[in-house]
Design a binder for these strands. Structure first.
Lengths: 351, 351
DNA sequence: CAGTAGGGTGGGAGCGCTCCCATCGGTGAT
DNA sequence: ATCACCGATGGGAGCGCTCCCACCCTACTG
């Protein structure tokens, strides 16, 4: 438990006011950039602020103004996954970038497990942030609904379903998957397997749908022997690849819905004596560090994670402003509350 | 800019007190776990808290108590590096773990560039955290000294020099380097090159020292043609390896002071037609994702990053407690303020 | 020249909590 | 029975800020 801080007392508004020979209200106006202050007064105050090295006490401000000037990025995952996936890092980078222009602070929070989630919910309820960015959400995630219910401005990084009530930003998983499959087909592959993600993640559903539709568009029939369901982990990729080789030994291409799963698949393919890309072409999703360092380089679908982070931040700031005016965000038109950003196929040696 | 929050008003201490038929002070005591409350009263208060769904307002608490119950992890790096290195993820994981037992919140902050650092310093000065964990510090980092000067409890993740004034936690870079070199020598290598890190990082100095001493201990003389200085990046590793091959074409082993540099070195070795490990053995430092996915797997010196994070948190909590009592931390004995944790060599196919 | 806008300003009233002092019984000692 | 004492409790006094109302003075208007 923390105790009383003792780093030397800092000057208060009152002291600045005294020094500048004005009232508290005036100093507050200057600090907050109100236009209703004469230039002379403003200059005097600014000088006093500089001389005293005044920095507003945020706790006092938060208490009086009922806002915190900070937003939280909530990751309902263990940190390990968070750090191993470039998806998150790009996202957080984009958020940071977007925030740099405002004077909001970024708070990064993890919530692995139920107990942690409760703690976090209490924390958020304690009114410590103005808004929340929820990243990587599963369909049955209770936190999203709790936030919605508590009426805390929130944006999520991928809709949980087609009719997501919360504003969201997502990549075009469907088109990304189609481009990957199209690429494989255009390379002459005819038996394209997929290692799908867990279907309680909406984005995983969309990728699978893209795979199916692209095959259909090319006149190839959907063969469920070519479909395996992983969990986005390397181990899952290994398991799926083993299954697929057993069921469809004749496959000549694999589209793994995450780079980590692709990496697992690669190991199994190697052990089975299949050469990449000669015997089997491999494509991943995410374009992570792993993709670049794999042997051979892994062709992968890149998501514009930085832009996503930035877009989410923009939406959230809107939400917060709306909340301030007392309007519920549901008053807004749906379309502009759900952004979908394009993907890009990065071709490397594996296909 | 954020605006006034409007999520429905939450109950206050006063309301809980009224409901429980007691005074404000008593409720406060219960909330904060003071022993000076009778069991009957405590039960009544707890019931009222539950019924009203009371959650203390942290801003008010921070203002009144002059503490925030949160600490910041400050990373003076761009996020990209932060996320690509497992060093950080383990660290943050350890901190999170240590914090789970207390009721402190974790704040993650980046400060790339001077302007950001100023902003951050102001933020910290605004008294928004009880303490700071400074990760990855260069010798000339101004932030560390500023924190010291502002008298804000701080712990850093690697001393900047041998007489670091701030409490610190570090890995045994020296011993780690020695174990890497010892391993190479025991495998019969006789011409071991090193790709060192930037010498303004204390840890990089220690690794170089370990390399030199281990060679000396084995009766091998130090040959400066076998030493190149990188910057911990992949590109730097490439450059260094190129240099080394030019200067010492006969080398049969390379100790790279980071996995990323090892990866760069590997590329150059490949292009030069040297087989790993047959012609040249390669060892890295960090044991990152890259090490596991390299072809062949990279032998690497692992740091106990999780434990480091935990240890740093422990030291910081002590610091905060001391500050609360008004004592300066310098009053403590030096030894227990500088922890050094052991490394472990993970052997893979590259050596 | 009185009358009326305003822009500019000062400062009271909180925001919800912690701290601490005063108070109130009850207990054991004298 | 009297008194000192202690645990349990109530509530005043802020913490440093924002909000907002009242006020002042200058600059027009009619």
């Amino acid at each position: 438990m923390a105790a009383r801080g003792t780093h030397g007392r800092r000057p208060t508004l009152e002291e600045v006011a005294a020094r500048a020979g004005v009232g508290r209200g005036t100093v507050s106006r200057v600090i907050n950039g109100s236009p209703r202050v004469s230039d002379r007064t403003r200059a005097a105050v600014e000088e006093a602020v500089a001389e005293l090295g005044y920095v507003p006490n945020t706790a006092a401000r938060a208490l009086a103004a009922n806002r915190t000037d900070s937003i939280a990025v909530v990751v309902p995952e263990a940190e390990s996954r968070f750090f191993s996936e470039p998806y998150f890092s790009g996202m957080v980078g984009g958020v940071g970038m977007a925030l740099a222009e405002s004077n909001l602070q970024l708070l990064l929070t993890f919530a692995r497990g139920e107990r942690e989630q409760d703690r976090l919910a209490a924390y958020l309820a304690a009114h410590r942030v103005d808004g929340v960015l929820l990243v990587s959400v599963h369909a049955d995630d209770p936190l999203a609904d709790r936030l919605l219910q508590m009426d805390i401005p929130t944006v999520i990084s991928g809709p949980r379903s087609a009719d997501e009530p919360l504003p969201s930003v997502d990549t075009d998983n469907y088109a990304g998957a189609r481009s990957a499959v199209d690429h494989l087909l255009s390379r002459g592959r005819r038996s394209v397997a997929i290692i799908a993600g867990p279907l309680d993640v909406y984005g995983a559903q969309r990728r699978l749908a893209g795979y199916e539709d692209e095959l259909a568009a090319s006149g190839l029939s959907y063969d469920e022997k070519l479909v395996a369901y992983g969990d986005f982990t390397e181990e899952g990729g290994r398991r799926c690849m083993t299954e697929l080789l057993e069921r469809s030994p004749g496959l000549d291409a694999v589209f793994a819905c995450s780079d980590l799963m692709a990496s697992g698949a690669r190991q199994v393919l190697r052990e089975a004596g299949r050469r990449i890309p000669d015997d089997v072409a491999l494509v991943g999703f995410d374009d992570s560090v792993i993709a670049r360092h794999m042997e051979p380089g892994l062709t992968s679908v890149r998501q514009p994670t930085r832009d996503m982070g930035r877009a989410m931040t923009g939406l959230l700031l809107d939400e917060i402003a709306l909340a301030a005016e007392g309007k519920r965000s549901s008053a807004r038109r749906g379309a502009e509350r759900h952004l979908v950003l394009p993907t890009e196929l990065v071709v490397r040696g594996s296909s």
